[in-house]
Nucleic acid binder design. Structure first.
Length: 286
DNA sequence: CGGGACTCCTGAGGGC
DNA sequence: TGCCCTCAGGAGTCCC
């Protein structure tokens, strides 16, 4: 599901509602996520207070007193916050919200502020891991490239990385070791806005094009965050509110439609790169 | 190195 | 109605 803007929306929502809360109970309904939840997971979390909530790339990090809880939502992971008014909620891996069946609740965190935090994940590609380490010692985070909003993510960094890369630009932008937080939707949108073809080879990019790419990477992510992220299928923040950046998509999912640029009106094509859909305008993306 | 195929998993949507 | 197929905001591995 989620890329940087969606994770940032989730983080802000969590921060408002559960920062400083104490975890008073944890129930694991299904330990078979991407990585198996360890048997000591609940025991190690009960009694801990949430002291801060940060985002790095597509990861959420809950800071506890001496521990860190790392959360990755994979493709379909969600965090819900519900009022702790239904005593039955801990007994099942589903519940009804306004008569809608919510399935695939895998972990419940009962908090001392009247809320329950729920980890829900249909496809179970996401994971949660508890660490006694410091942030800079966590393997998943150590390998990540720069955040797009980091000042060091600039022309020099980009040029240097791309200089002798034979990779195409789509896969370069998708590579979390280069720039972290972009995923399939936003890379499609960024390349479209930059008028750059997804198959362009890294070392062939001109300085001017790199500048444009950097500009749109930051700009599109910022706008997406301001719109509450993208809700195609069913992304929502932990309070259940959807984002609406999907209404502003210019290419993603627009195969066979005309380019939205009035001066172009070319056709939007779809190709597959590394098994992922790539949408682009065959006329204006060079 | 790079890219394609395939893996994890469930469900929505289209075609017939 | 149902069945079969493809595809899905991620990311890793294996193979050529």
């Amino acid at each position: 599901m989620p890329e940087l803007p969606e994770i940032e929306i989730v983080r802000r929502s969590l921060f408002k509602m559960i920062n400083n809360a104490k975890i008073i109970n944890v129930k694991v309904k299904n330990e078979n996520l991407r990585y198996k939840i360890s048997t000591s997971f609940s025991k190690n979390l009960i009694g801990e207070k949430i002291l801060n909530i940060k985002r790095r790339s597509k990861y959420l990090i809950l800071f506890l007193k001496k521990k860190l809880l790392l959360i990755h939502l994979g493709m379909s992971g969600k965090l819900f916050i519900v009022r702790d008014c239904d005593k039955k909620i801990f007994k099942t891996s589903f519940y009804y919200d306004q008569n809608i069946l919510i399935k695939h609740n895998h972990i419940y965190f009962k908090l001392n502020n009247g809320f329950i935090l729920i980890y829900n994940d249909v496809r179970r590609f996401g994971f949660l891991k508890l660490y006694n380490k410091k942030l800079d010692q966590i393997p998943f985070l150590k390998e990540l490239g720069l955040e797009p909003f980091n000042k060091k993510f600039n022309l020099n960094y980009f040029k240097k990385y791309v200089a002798n890369k034979k990779k195409n630009i789509k896969n370069i932008l998708m590579d979390q070791k280069f720039v972290s937080g972009l995923g399939n939707i936003y890379v499609n949108e960024i390349l479209y806005m930059s008028k750059i073809h997804p198959l362009r080879i890294g070392y062939n990019l001109k300085e001017k094009e790199i500048k444009i790419l950097i500009y749109y990477i930051k700009k599109i992510l910022k706008i997406a965050i301001s719109k509450g992220g993208s809700s195609i299928r069913d992304f929502s923040n932990p309070k259940g509110k959807s984002g609406n950046f999907q209404e502003f998509f210019r290419v993603y999912g627009k195969e066979h439609k005309n380019c939205s640029r009035i001066s172009c009106r070319g056709r939007i094509k779809r190709i597959f790169l590394s098994n992922r859909s790539s949408f682009y305008c065959e006329k204006c993306q060079k």
